[in-house]
Design a protein around this nucleic acid. Sequence first.
DNA 1: GTAAATGCAAAGCGTTTGCACGCGG
DNA 2: CCGCGTGCAAACGCTTTGCATTTAC
Lengths: 155, 155
Amino acid sequence: MTEHKHEHKQSHEAMVQDMIHIMSQHGWRITEQRKKLAEIFAKADGYLSPKDVYDQMTVNYPNVSFDTVYRNLRLLSEMGALEQFYFMDGGLKFRASCTEHHHHHLICVNCEKTLTFDYCPMEQSLHLPGSFKIMNHRFEVYGVCEECQNPNAKS
Amino acid sequence: MTEHKHEHKQSHEAMVQDMIHIMSQHGWRITEQRKKLAEIFAKADGYLSPKDVYDQMTVNYPNVSFDTVYRNLRLLSEMGALEQFYFMDGGLKFRASCTEHHHHHLICVNCEKTLTFDYCPMEQSLHLPGSFKIMNHRFEVYGVCEECQNPNAKS
DNA sequence: GTAAATGCAAAGCGTTTGCACGCGG
DNA sequence: CCGCGTGCAAACGCTTTGCATTTAC
């Protein structure tokens, strides 16, 4: 119902359509499970573990299997619709890909809600040791989000 | 032999002694395997996976078991003698802890040799979104080290 | 109708645990 | 000589694979 627009974040509906479109483009069949998968990630404002996704899937498709979840998560990552990410504890999580621009993440260590920000340390005239050919980097900030700081947020 | 001096990196010998000292301090027994573990990490100039450590251990202790390696790696991490770290692929690795100062890492994606550097993006007046209470951060740069760039480095 | 996607079960991998023996203190 | 540390084996959690059935196209 709520038609949110000119934000840099597109509407849930549009995100779902985008992901479904990507899947068709790659010659994939649009199954109910994959539609649901797209919806789950469109709604989520943070990272989801395979288990999280599975749990949300089972609400509508009680007999979905774990391997279907994994299969589709991997396929969606490979084609860039999802970002996959190993958290500090080594756990694998996924989130809808922001393909628009380079950014980094501010992640709530409690609820794992994730905000993006544009500052990138690599844009500084960074003096690095050795003579490495730089390929890649990783920068994340971990903290407690406002809601999780607030005690009135009943557990 | 080499009397380590004002370098921030101490000699292998001293590192081994430090780690052994830490273990005694915590009431641990100094077994041959644990001595060897200390030597392995003193010699390594990058991160080692449990498998790497196991492989090096078996050279001298052919019937060492994987669980002993894991147990000691975990214990050494818990007491701060080792840093543990999940790589971008989610694989767990360990390296001798630099307890001296805050730093970040430049990691060779080929050989995983690791250099440390002092620049820290959090020291900038970093404008972050939301009102998170910052707890932690992670910053790593990945590249190819000079040796791995050089074709004359025979495989 | 045909090939792809699913669900089930079983295997795979990395890591942990329980227990009897061996060794450090 | 007491008890921690070890090695073996088995369990564990997470992820992947093989195969028959179901489903999208």
